[in-house]
């Protein structure tokens, strides 16, 4: 499969947050400020690629022993351990990077988008390189959605024209609905 097709498909058409509803918690929780939204997005790209790099070969091992049904347990443990190790390694060897990304790493461990991308890479039958490209694209799509959404949310801040029942969470979701509607326009692209 063409890498370009995979990338466009996963970033715009099947955007992980807006079309597939993966990683909604950080999308709604960490998108108040542009800085933290971007930081979170970059950390997600990093972890997604790393997790795929680790879980794809593991699936081969599981399959060779015909214990593919252990996928869920194996993947979540590998991802959790991996993220912890990476955090420690970054702290020790690249403190500057740890300062900017480190805070986001632990909270990505049980993020459904990361586990989701690992499993869907297997389900789609991607090769190793394709799986890595797909994970990178999923992360970029997440970053894109986060950055756009944090911009939209900054306009909501202090807006008093919102009905009382809709203030706070509901209006945030309505905003997300419109962003998602916008991304639906990419529908026929791939």
């Amino acid at each position: 499969m063409e890498f370009g097709t995979i990338l466009v498909g996963i970033i715009l058409v099947n955007n992980y947050v807006l079309a597939q509803f993966l990683g909604i918690c950080p999308f709604l929780g960490v998108s108040k400020k542009l800085d933290s939204a971007a930081g979170m997005g970059v950390a997600v790209i990093f972890v997604m690629v790393l997790a795929t790099a680790a879980t794809w070969p593991i699936m081969r091992v599981l399959d060779s022993f015909e214990i593919g049904y252990l996928q869920t347990i194996a993947f979540i443990l590998v991802i959790a351990a991996l993220v912890q190790f990476v955090e420690m390694a970054l702290k020790k060897f690249i403190p500057a990077l740890h300062k900017s990304l480190g805070v986001y790493l632990p909270l990505i461990t049980t993020n459904c988008a990361v586990l989701g991308v690992c499993i869907s890479n297997i389900d789609e039958g991607y090769s190793y390189i394709e799986a890595l490209v797909n994970s990178f694209g999923a992360g970029v799509g997440f970053l894109l959605a986060m950055v756009i959404f944090s911009g939209m949310r900054s306009k909501l801040e202090g807006n008093t024209a919102i009905p009382q029942s809709f203030q706070g969470v509901p209006i945030t979701l309505v905003t997300a609905a419109f962003l998602s509607l916008g991304f639906m326009g990419f529908g026929g692209l791939v």
């Binding site: 509803f21 509901p170 979701l173």
Partner: peptide
């Protein structure tokens, strides 16, 4: 997809209305 966000927001708004803003625990 957009309908999912929208219907969810309507339901939370309804809970907000029914409990006069006390129900839903703050923010995400």
């Amino acid at each position: 997809a957009p309908g999912g966000f929208f219907v969810y927001s309507l339901l939370i708004a309804a809970v907000n209305k029914a409990t006069k803003g006390k129900g839903v625990k703050g923010d995400f």
